[in-house]
Amino acid sequence: MLLIYCPYCEEERSELEFRNGGDAHIARPTNIAEISDEEFEAYFFLRDNPKGVIFERWRHIHGCGRFFNAARDTVSDRFLTTYKAGEPKPDLDAEPKTSAEVETYEALEGAAQ
């Protein structure tokens, strides 16, 4: 069961309090009534389903109720970062580790041995 850092509650909470909301950073066109069929298809239907890092929306539905965004690795289920709705897509290479990230323990393990 995942632990997800809610950027509004500033705390990690159990997955049970959250609901996934699909891909993030897909803005509804402000002139939606005028867009072409192809543009509508891209907006509403087409998604990448990547193996690796995905930017996705989550809602802390049984917590603060807010939608927020997360970068998650779909292979390891590790959350690279979470950030508030409306904030720009983070540059993951530049991003400092957040407390949402699981550290591996390899370095420490050497010391233990």
Binding site: T104, Y105, E109
Partner: peptide, 16 residues
């Protein structure tokens, strides 16, 4: 070998 989570193996299960 490679750890994926915050854990440590010790003793016989770690080959010690």
């Amino acid at each position: 070998g490679t750890y994926a989570q915050d854990c440590l193996s010790i003793g016989a299960c770690n080959g010690t």
